[in-house]
Each structure stands twice: as structure tokens, then as C-alpha cells.
Design a binder for these strands. Structure first.
Lengths: 115, 115
DNA sequence: CAGATAGTCAACCGTTTGGTTGAATAAAGT
DNA sequence: ACTTTATTCAACCAAACGGTTGACTATCTG
């Protein structure tokens, strides 16, 4: 339903899911391995992984009964592109504003203001 | 309640809020101005802005009856730092894996395998 | 003072979310 | 064949979300 960018941001809005991503950046892992440190059921973690999978952040393959989860680091680009775009735009705006203020100082210094 | 990183990702998980951020990257704006293009009530937009404000992405000042909304571009760093950290870790892992596979090729080329 | 303008607060509502437990499925091991 | 291991599906629940409408507050203007 929602666009991928929304899904990725939603996926990372949960601390448990961010921690899962952090751990997957070190090594692939199974659902049970991932669930172990948390104080929630394996089913809950399975749901978290579904959210991460739907967002494209992780993929799951089959390996006997196990289903190793793998981090797809390329999806990060989607976010950084969006972020950088508007950060740059905002930064440029402030630079222009600074330039305007400097220009005003040069044109009309307070020390020479008529009074 | 939640940490700032969670709040920022939550804030950007909504398309309307992302669009608001995009527009604020061009210029500051009031609540009514921001609400105009959307097909929802001003109150709904006011709520969106509260979410953005709680996340630290925007600030509001007072100017007569108006309450101009301003984008705080520095909060983007929080996200990019998090993202880059795990992206780099993941990339490094794949590079190591590639190195291991190359090494295996050198040590034991398939063409020389005993059969 | 009486509007008009700009914005928030409060109560409500349907849907989504993150969790639970219990049953089902899939593949291995014995 | 039966059991264990790994994982998902289904139904349920309380809390949060995104929206609504109506009332309230604050500021400027006639």
C-alpha cells in the first residue's frame, strides 16, 4: 500500500527493529537467534522481520528448516538520498540568507544610520 | 517517551509530513499556508507539525498571531550518522566475504581439483 | 468593544501496531 | 512413523495514529 520510503522509515522507527538491523550488519542470523536477547516472543520478532522485509531492508532465504535473514544495505541509499536532498536545500537557503544579511550590512551599516 | 531517533524516523514515515519537510526546506511557512494544498483540516496539519516538533525536525516561533514553522536541518545528521554506521559495517562485511572467496579461488582452483 | 484571523485543545472514531497465546507447517533427526 | 526444531499463521487485545468536528485562546483591526 504505502511507498517504500514510508515503509523504510516506519521500519526503522522501532528500537527493536533498529537493533535487529544493527546486528544483521555484523552477520546474517536466524529468527530464533535474533529473538534470543529480547524479552518478547519469537512470534513478535517474526512480525518485526516481516516489517523489515516488506520495507526491503532485509531478505530471507531458506536453508533446511532455518530461514537466515540477510541485510540489504543498498536500501539505505533511498533514505540518504531523500535526507541529503532536503538538507542541502535547507543549507543553501541559510547560506543565501547569510549573504543577504551581509549585503545589508555593507549597504547600510548601522554606524552610518541617520539620526 | 521514545528516543529522538525513533521520533525522527516516525515523523518521516508519513508522506504528508515528508512533504511538509520538503516545503519547509524552501522557506518557513505558517500552519495555514502549509495546510492549504492538502485535503485535510488545519487541525490535522497542526497535529503533524506537533509530531515534527517533538522529533526536533522543526521549531515554531511567534510572530503576532502567526506561528511560522522553521526546519531544523541539523537533526538530519542524527539519521545519517545512524544509517552510515550500519551501511559501512555491512559493506565492510561483504568486502571481507569477497576477499575470502577470492582467497579460496587462489588456494584451490576448480580447474586443478582432483577427480 | 466587536469582529476577523491564526492556531491549539479536547473528545471522539476507525484503523494500524506491537504484543500475546495456540495451532499449523516444514524439514531433520531417531 | 514419531519427535524435535524452526518458523509462520490466526485470533485476540490494548495502545497509538491520523483523521474528524466543536470549542477555546490569542492577536490584530475596524
Amino acid at each position: 500500500m504505502a511507498d517504500q520510503l514510508s515503509k523504510v522509515f516506519t521500519a526503522l522507527s522501532d528500537p527493536t527493529r533498529r537493533d535487529i538491523v544493527a546486528r544483521l550488519s555484523v552477520a546474517d542470523a536466524t529468527v530464533n537467534e535474533l529473538a534470543e536477547p529480547y524479552d518478547v516472543s519469537v512470534q513478535a520478532v517474526s512480525k518485526h522481520l516481516k516489517v523489515l522485509e516488506d520495507s526491503g531492508l532485509v531478505t530471507r532465504t531458506r536453508e533446511a528448516q532455518r530461514r537466515p535473514v540477510h541485510l540489504e544495505d543498498n536500501v539505505f541509499d533511498l533514505m540518504t538520498k531523500w535526507i541529503d536532498r532536503y538538507r542541502q536545500q535547507a543549507e543553501q537557503r541559510y547560506q543565501r540568507l547569510d549573504a543577504v544579511l551581509e549585503q545589508m550590512d555593507e549597504d547600510e551599516p548601522t554606524s552610518r544610520e541617520g539620526a
